[in-house]
């Protein structure tokens, strides 16, 4: 995946709670076998309204979203972060972010940032004004900075931070633990009773 180091980009305010993954990318857009091209479906119903923030400069070039509680709730579709990425969003900032969506962002080089409500209120206000909407997100420093001088620290798990900074493929890293996995499987047969191999026989008819 694309590494995330530092991002200077316009932040779009999305002052909504419970933005679910159906809202980020509705089901008809899931009928794809590829990861790209989903930006056209991003926030499909909201974008059909002329007033919607992402339809207007400078936010039509936004690289950051500032939203409210429980962003990304609902389905596990990774198509939601793929759509954000395809549109150009590399960072989502909210007071709380749903678990699966949070994971999915990290796997795709999108930085999810959880900040307290008071910080979100300030960022929301800044993002609403084109003069102050550009934010600078520095992952190494774990800081969100505004042109006004405001600097907000954020917390992220150390390993996720490393992976995002380096754009690392965690499958390759996990495969280096092959010996551990094999040893687990070896011992498993005695520990696990009755977890049988799945076979094609019995599924066809």
């Amino acid at each position: 995946m694309m590494p995330f180091t530092r991002l200077d980009a316009v932040a779009a305010p999305l002052p909504l709670v419970n933005v679910d993954t159906d809202k980020i990318l509705p089901a008809p857009f899931l009928k794809t076998i590829s990861r790209t091209g989903l930006g056209k479906g991003l926030f499909h119903s909201l974008r059909s309204e002329p007033d919607f923030i992402l339809n207007h400069a400078p936010w039509d070039q936004a690289g950051i979203l500032v939203a409210l509680d429980n962003f990304g709730c609902g389905s596990s579709r990774e198509h939601a972060p793929w759509a954000l990425l395809d549109f150009g969003i590399r960072c989502v900032i909210a007071p709380s972010i749903a678990d699966i969506f949070y994971n999915n962002c990290c796997k795709n080089g999108i930085l999810p940032i959880v900040l307290p409500h008071t910080d979100i209120d300030r960022l929301m206000a800044l993002a609403t004004d084109p003069a102050t909407a550009t934010l600078s997100v520095d992952l190494a420093q774990q800081t969100v900075r505004a042109t006004t001088g405001l600097a907000l620290p954020f917390v992220i798990d150390a390993q996720r931070k490393q992976d995002l900074l380096q754009g690392v493929d965690d499958i390759a890293r996990s495969l280096t633990r092959e010996a551990d996995i094999a040893a687990y499987e070896h011992a498993m047969d005695s520990r696990q009773v009755g977890v049988r191999a799945i076979t094609q026989a019995g599924l066809d008819g």
């Binding site: 596990s76 990774e78 699966i100 994971n103 999915n104 796997k107 965690d170 499958i171 996990s174 996995i181």
Partner: peptide, 20 residues
């Protein structure tokens, strides 16, 4: 529990998931 597509790829390749 539900997982994303990248995690599914991780499970296919390793039969494990990175979890806290």
């Amino acid at each position: 529990f539900g997982i994303g597509t990248s995690e599914a790829e991780h499970v296919l390749a390793t039969q494990t998931l990175i979890q806290q």
